[in-house]
């Protein structure tokens, strides 16, 4: 029995068509939300540069405020980390090639909080014409303390293990502090000027989400998302 040429062509087209479409596309889930501040909002505290006049001069008449607790005008919290604490799928996403940068500028760390993936470069830059140092207060990795005596000096560091809330300090200027969070997956966000967060590209599943803030502590929530679903979650933090 010989198959007809037409039949063969049809079969070939079907195979080709299927291979072009590929496996059925899976719709990723999204978790959106806000980190709200509960209670009486403390008045922003202007930074005290102490005797370091050179630092104050760099800000002119616009003195910055402390960033350890920033409550946005919409009563939300800035600089809070929201991340998948448990249930994060093993990520196939490669470690981002671009580095995360923390700048020592105007005797402050900018930005105040960053997230780096394991193995991703974190660059510390000194943009000031002053001596700064970067001392890590890591509890998982070996701490380091490096001087950055020259303007535009950069030091790149990588982290090998996940750790939340590694405090970075400059001992020359006691008020300078920032936080590096190291994660082994890409499911995280740091809240900004509107206190919102978005964690996207999640497969369907049940996750423990945690919000972490240096002054307001932590809070967790369990969230189940279906394929392609967008869920909203709110955290409310208060000073204890």
């Amino acid at each position: 029995m010989r198959s007809s040429p037409l039949k063969n062509i049809g079969f070939a087209l079907l195979v080709c068509g299927l291979s072009c479409v590929g496996p059925l596309t899976v719709q990723a889930a999204v978790i959106n939300g806000k980190v709200i501040f509960e209670g009486e909002v403390p008045a922003p505290k202007p930074l005290n540069f102490g005797a370091e006049k050179q630092c104050a001069v760099m800000h002119g008449d616009k003195m910055p405020v402390t960033e350890d607790l920033v409550v946005n005008p919409n009563q939300t919290v800035k600089w809070a980390l929201v991340y998948i604490k448990e249930g994060a799928p093993a990520s196939t996403a490669p470690t981002p090639g671009e580095a995360v940068e923390i700048n020592q500028k105007g005797c402050m760390f900018e930005p105040h909080a960053v997230v780096a993936r394991i193995g991703q470069k974190v660059i510390f830059r000194n943009s000031d014409p002053l001596l700064h140092n970067v001392r890590s207060e890591s509890k998982v990795e070996k701490p380091f303390n490096i001087a950055q005596p020259l303007q535009d000096m950069t030091t790149a560091k990588t982290f090998a293990q996940p750790e939340i809330g590694i405090k970075m300090r400059c001992d020359v200027h006691f008020w300078m502090a920032s936080y590096v969070h190291v994660l082994d997956h890409p499911f995280y966000a740091v809240t900004g000027d509107d206190g919102s967060f978005q964690i996207k590209d999640l497969p369907a599943g049940t996750y423990t989400i945690e919000v972490w803030h240096e002054k307001l502590g932590t809070q967790t929530a369990e969230i189940t998302v279906a394929e392609g679903e967008t869920k909203t979650s709110e955290f409310a933090l208060r000073l204890s």
Binding site: R135, P143, F144, N145, A147
Partner: peptide
């Protein structure tokens, strides 16, 4: 005493063994 002792030259806290 790591994390507590100071370097006598640069005055930085000693961290890395």
């Amino acid at each position: 005493a790591y994390g507590r002792d100071f370097c006598v030259q640069c005055r930085m806290i000693i961290e890395e063994e």
